[in-house]
Design a protein around this nucleic acid. Structure first.
Lengths: 195, 195
DNA sequence: GCCATTTCTTATCCTACATCAAGGCCTTGC
DNA sequence: GCAAGGCCTTGATGTAGGATAAGAAATGGC
């Protein structure tokens, strides 16, 4: 299964200090899996059993609110991690669902991943700590955005931060990420196109 | 300085496995400090030099946007941690400011805290990992809130989650946290009072 | 290749909250 | 003790984006 090479190169890029043997052990913690478009990996309100590293394709984390509307917390294209970590670590009901936006190849990990990670030495631990910090920073940025910026400004910011995602994702998903209706996004795009 | 006892009991509650000696070493990483009301600990856009554990009083993390409006990311009353971790770890300009909402006693830590933490064994590391996870979860909850709920619903949720804060904080700060103007909060409260 | 479904757009009307303006009530300083 | 400034409220008006409805354009199944 070729796309695994994407994981090897990811490790080399971000954890160059890892010994070949450590890489092997670490890689052994994951289970490869293919997801079809729309296939659900984690169901909101059920205990999550997996998190994922995305080899190819794109996943999303989203909540479905009382009125049935979906709100997207995060997209995870190639080389991103996605999981409800809290649910995994505490075996608590998941706060959100995770599914595949596109047909995807992923590496799954399960709750046992965390204790094993700790045995694998400080470098990996620190790496995951920093990943988590990055997601805090990203979330803060989004929160500030919805608190202070217009939908148009948020859309432009999204395009700038994630140019490839902005092109390949269906607009309705982008709208659900920005926190507006597809109709509003459509209007907004027309405005922008006119200049 | 009496309020330090608050820290000791915090450690006992959350890290009961720590040896007396470890507690002493860990506590030695912090510098006590008093903050007057409104005193600023971290300035947005400057490199942050400190994070804090709050012994008494209350701090807040907030950003000031282009129009001069403040948006509050987090309140930190007694027994909470507050810091721009990314700024501390990477010595990058802070994404937000931190100041004291009330006169406060805090324990400061600096960038050297992180490497020392790693030397102090896995229990503390894991504890901080989980703290970070909790803040991700809290942030996600807020993001969902602003994306999907009305100002009224968010205010009620705030009152329920942080009943003491809801009482002791000035309303304009609560408004800045909820993402609405003080005028809107005032009106909203009148409605709720009429019920 | 054609029907069915989903996705995107457009138009109209509506609502939650912002903005602007002003007044009352505290606090705090001298 | 009173002036000055903050804080909260109230009112009038404005606006970004929502809700609804319906048509156009992709997409996919068979």
């Amino acid at each position: 299964m070729m796309p695994l090479a994407a994981f090897q190169s990811y490790l080399q890029r971000h954890l160059p200090g890892l010994l070949e043997e450590e890489v092997a052990v670490f890689t052994g913690l994951f289970t490869p899996r293919t997801l079809r478009r729309q296939e659900v990996l984690v169901h909101q309100d059920e205990v999550g059993r997996h998190g994922a590293f995305v080899l190819s394709g794109c996943l999303r984390a989203y909540v479905t609110d009382a009125k049935g509307k979906e709100h997207i917390l995060q997209f995870a294209p190639e080389s991103w991690w996605i999981a409800d970590q809290y649910s995994l670590l505490h075996q608590a009901p998941a706060q959100f669902s995770i599914d595949a936006v596109e047909a995807s190849n992923v590496l799954l990990f399960d709750p046992a991943f965390y204790p094993r990670l700790r045995q694998l030495g400080p470098e990996l631990q620190q790496f995951f700590y920093e990943l988590l910090q990055n997601s805090v920073a990203a979330m803060q940025h989004r929160l500030i955005g919805v608190l202070s910026a217009t939908a148009e400004a948020r859309y432009l910011d999204f395009q700038q931060r994630y140019p490839t995602l902005a092109q390949r994702l269906p607009l309705r998903h982008i709208a659900a990420y920005l926190g507006i209706t597809p109709e509003s996004l459509s209007r907004l795009r027309k405005e922008l196109a006119r200049g």
